[in-house]
Design a protein around this nucleic acid. Structure first.
Lengths: 183, 183
DNA sequence: ATCCTCATGTAACACGTTACATGATTAC
DNA sequence: GTAATCATGTAACGTGTTACATGAGGAT
């Protein structure tokens, strides 16, 4: 039934944690769900527009000095309903993993070995830094918190990154071995 | 100065494995790189257009009976150059993971427990079936093959899926535990 | 006979990113 | 005092998905 894109519900959901301006929402999104659902700043502006049109949220103009005026949005009861209805539907939006890096690896037989190696090394660093960022988050999760599900997403991110790191190491070893043989 | 989107190079790269029609290319893509770089049918038509305009590939019309006529594209030498130049550049296009499912989990505190559980169960099945699909591929990789890098991407997919499965199991256990406490 | 899928392709639209714009602070 | 960043937002564009179209062949 519903029909709004996930991004719309994501914005709505973030607003369920308190009123915010689009600008703040974008920042909030970047620090919370961005690892598995990135939303660009402009998209947020678009979505609040749509949600307001549907009556799911309401905006209030706030004048400021020292910074441009802004609009702060907050959920309406009808927005809460919409969010909960969406959440109650267990239909499974397929997950997409998109990696230009892997496209290059896929054509690795056309690449000079050292370039492939450097590429994989970069991916390794990338994953390592994701791990460094997520590990502390996952470890300091308050176990009884009502937000443990939010943290669960970080746990998955961590596991995925660890898998990526392991793969990079494994593949680098294989590359080194191959090169030794060729010599 | 490159500048083409990854999708274009992906199509070009697939053509490096032999001439194909856009329709066949789309199928080929679906069976090879789709796990980390999905390309829709219509996109393929668009990209061959662009690549042909750049002189990277050439199309030849083929008449058929019993099926609509088609155009078969093949790489030109200048296309090979373009592909190799792109491959030689180790710049790192950041990987994006997109999962509406995780967005729901993120707001799990608003969901009835059994819905969350069902959702995670679905993701579990999803990952399990990815594993079932990838494991045989990874295991029958001919070790000396020039295509071992292509298989390496499947290995990563497998590791990622295993990580997802482990997470689902872990999270389901946690959920069950929480529910027991609440009773 | 009818319906479904295959093989080919096009068109419309929605999603998402990047670049632009602007005045106020903060940094050097 | 000049440059970078912050806080707000808009506009333009490119990417990607979904729906449409069509005739032949296979399935029931």
């Amino acid at each position: 039934m519903a029909g709004l894109p996930t991004t719309a519900y994501a914005v709505l959901g973030l607003l369920s944690w308190g009123p915010r301006s689009p600008y703040d929402l974008a920042q909030f999104a970047a620090q919370s769900i961005a690892n598995f659902w990135n939303i660009s700043k402009s998209q947020v502006y678009g979505e609040v527009e749509r949600l307001a049109g549907l009556g799911y949220i309401e905006g209030e103009a706030v004048e400021q000095q020292g910074a441009p005026d802004k609009t702060i949005y907050k959920m309406t009861p009808s927005g809460e309903d919409a969010l909960d209805t969406w959440l109650a539907d267990p239909s499974f939006d397929p997950q997409r993993f998109r990696s230009g890096f892997l496209v290059k690896v896929f054509f690795g037989h056309r690449m000079p070995d050292h370039v492939l190696e450097e590429l994989i090394n970069r991916s390794r660093r990338e994953w390592q830094s994701a791990i460094d960022q997520l590990r502390p988050v996952v470890e300091r999760v308050p176990s009884g918190s009502q937000f443990r599900y939010a943290f669960a997403t970080a746990r998955l991110g961590l596991k995925m990154s660890e898998a990526g790191l392991a793969w990079a190491d494994e593949t680098l070893r294989e590359l080194a071995q191959t090169r030794r043989k060729k010599k």
